[in-house]
């Protein structure tokens, strides 16, 4: 079935694919960093108990979680210009990924904080620690252990999500496949190669995520 699979053309396009891999890695790295910041802020607002912070945060998180990323990307891509804001595709895409993953990360962190034993918090209150101190010394250190594995999971999701940016012509890995398809019409070669590179990225990230999880469980035993 793949008898006339054309490796020569793939080789010819290798520089394009490698550029795509680099771009995807760059987009993912920038987006996850920004998303982490967004998520921490959103989560802080969400659990703050201050109404004017809490409700907008809830609205943001729930709206993101209940609409598709692709619609969010199009919303920004077609919507920002109507507001008179001119943003290049790449930045639009990163903004979308940041806002999207930020909402999920906010929920991951909140779940981590909620998982901390009520008794520990009460013990902190009893020994006179204030809210910030309790966060700093009791809640966050414990929440971190539960939070890191799903955060790394979200990172994997984000890499795959970034493929959607190809649909607003951002140059990245999937776009390389589209380019090769339109120039040579060899979609099988193009997209299987793209898939191969995503698999490589996936296995690196997955190995790291599994390793960190084992490490964390190991620490818990002690």
């Amino acid at each position: 079935m793949l008898t006339d699979f054309n490796f020569r053309v793939i080789w010819e396009y290798m520089p394009l694919f490698l550029t795509g891999v680099r771009a995807t890695a760059f987009i993912a790295a920038v987006s996850i960093t920004l998303a982490l910041i967004t998520g921490i802020i959103a989560c802080a607002c969400r659990i703050s108990g201050i109404k004017i912070l809490k409700y907008p945060a809830i609205a943001y998180i729930e709206l993101i979680r209940s609409t598709p990323l692709l619609v969010q990307i199009y919303f920004l891509y077609f919507g920002l210009p109507t507001l008179g804001v001119r943003v290049p595709e790449l930045q639009t895409g990163i903004l979308a990924l940041m806002l999207n993953s930020g909402a999920y990360i906010a929920e991951i962190i909140r779940a981590g904080i909620n998982s901390v034993d009520e008794g520990h918090i009460e013990a902190g209150i009893s020994s006179g620690l204030n809210y910030v101190q309790r966060m700093r010394f009791i809640i966050l250190p414990q929440a971190l252990g539960v939070t890191i594995p799903p955060l790394l999971g979200q990172n994997i999701v984000l890499v795959k999500d970034s493929a959607l940016l190809s649909l607003i012509s951002v140059v990245e890995l999937t776009r390389s496949g589209q380019t090769m398809t339109s120039e040579r019409f060899m979609p099988a070669e193009a997209f299987l190669t793209v898939a191969f590179f995503y698999m490589c990225i996936y296995f690196c990230l997955k190995t790291f995520a599994d390793w960190s999880q084992r490490k964390l469980i190991f620490r818990e035993v002690y």
Partner: peptide, 12 residues
């Protein structure tokens, strides 16, 4: 399936 983006799977 988990290692590749859905949009790439659809194209394939």
């Amino acid at each position: 399936v988990r290692g590749t983006p859905f949009v790439v799977q659809i194209f394939i």
